[in-house]
């Protein structure tokens, strides 16, 4: 188990291998905790009864996710310095993430270097689907874990070695709750919702839709068979996050895919433009 980095009890595997600690690229920066010690002398803390015990108070005042956030910052620095557009793809299971991704990759890889990190609790099925398109992919199995964290992603990046100026898709574990809280170092969070799920999902899982930059409303080819109100769904998402972009599409028929590819293109341009600005500055 990896005590230094705080990963799970040896359950996380990156493409079949148990996570090994000797191949770390992270800087395990010295944690500074401030940690003023309030010594309550002989008495129990809060009890102020001298002679009762030796306990004392230690103020920690730290974000529980501070370690994850440090790894995320390391990942982000790596992505920015290599001009890699990293996207965190989030959804519930069965929203069509992998299908959408494989369809997008067929077109994207004609123009760009692309790489994929797949996150699931078990199996390497999704990474195999991606590799079948000719795009390099690595699978993270989280074991009991219900989300990817920045530390796992750091190791996956190390193993995958995405090229400079590539697009890196990080397909998170299918779950609309936990992944919202864990920054992976991505440039953008993209939430995929399918019309088979119900238009109130943004209200039921507000943290996820609040954190997302873009919502892809997938499976719109099924709309004629469903009682799903697209406008209501978008209104719900904007109630949580007024700035969220929305693209309606169908991975199966290809309808709307162009809008999504265009968005990716724009994001890449933004990355390059900000890079030029910083180079000129």
């Amino acid at each position: 188990m990896c005590r230094v980095c705080g990963c799970g009890e040896g359950e996380t595997t990156i493409e079949g291998r148990e996570h090994r600690h000797d191949s770390h690229h992270h800087n395990h920066r010295e944690q500074t905790h401030g940690g003023h010690i309030h010594d309550y002398g002989q008495g129990a803390a809060h009890a102020h009864a001298p002679g009762m015990s030796q306990s004392r108070m230690v103020q920690v005042e730290q974000d529980i996710l501070s370690r994850n956030n440090q790894y995320a910052a390391t990942n982000r620095n790596h992505f920015v310095s290599h001009r890699i557009l990293a996207l965190n793809l989030l959804s519930s299971p069965g929203s069509g993430k992998t299908t959408l991704l494989t369809k997008s990759l067929v077109q994207l890889q004609r123009e760009f270097a692309v790489a994929v990190i797949e996150g699931d609790q078990q199996t390497a099925n999704d990474a195999e689907c991606i590799r079948a398109t000719g795009v390099k992919a690595v699978q993270i199995n989280t074991g009991r874990g219900c989300h990817l964290d920045a530390h796992m992603v750091g190791h996956a990046v190390e193993s995958l070695q995405p090229e400079k100026e590539s697009i890196l898709f990080i397909e998170n574990v299918g779950n609309l709750v936990c992944p919202a809280a864990f920054d992976l170092g991505e440039a953008r969070k993209v939430v995929i919702l399918s019309v088979t799920e119900g238009e109130d999902k943004p209200l039921k899982y507000p943290d996820m839709f609040h954190a997302a930059d873009l919502m892809l409303l997938n499976k719109i080819d099924l709309l004629p068979h469903l009682d799903f109100n697209v406008e209501q769904c978008i209104e719900n998402a904007r109630r949580i996050n007024p700035g969220i972009r929305v693209i309606c599409l169908s991975a199966t028929t290809g309808e709307g895919i162009d809008g999504w590819l265009q968005w990716l293109n724009n994001e890449r341009d933004l990355l390059t433009a900000s890079d030029q600005v910083s180079a000129e500055g």
Binding site: R3, G6, G8, Q31, H33, V60, Q62, I64, L65, S66, R67, N68, R144, G145, C146, H147, D149, N175, V177, C178, A181, F182
Partner: peptide, 16 residues
């Protein structure tokens, strides 16, 4: 659902 990994993070910070 992610309470387990939050507790693991808490433990790491306490150990530090």
């Amino acid at each position: 659902m992610h309470e387990m990994s939050l507790c693991e993070s808490v433990l790491r910070l306490i150990e530090d």
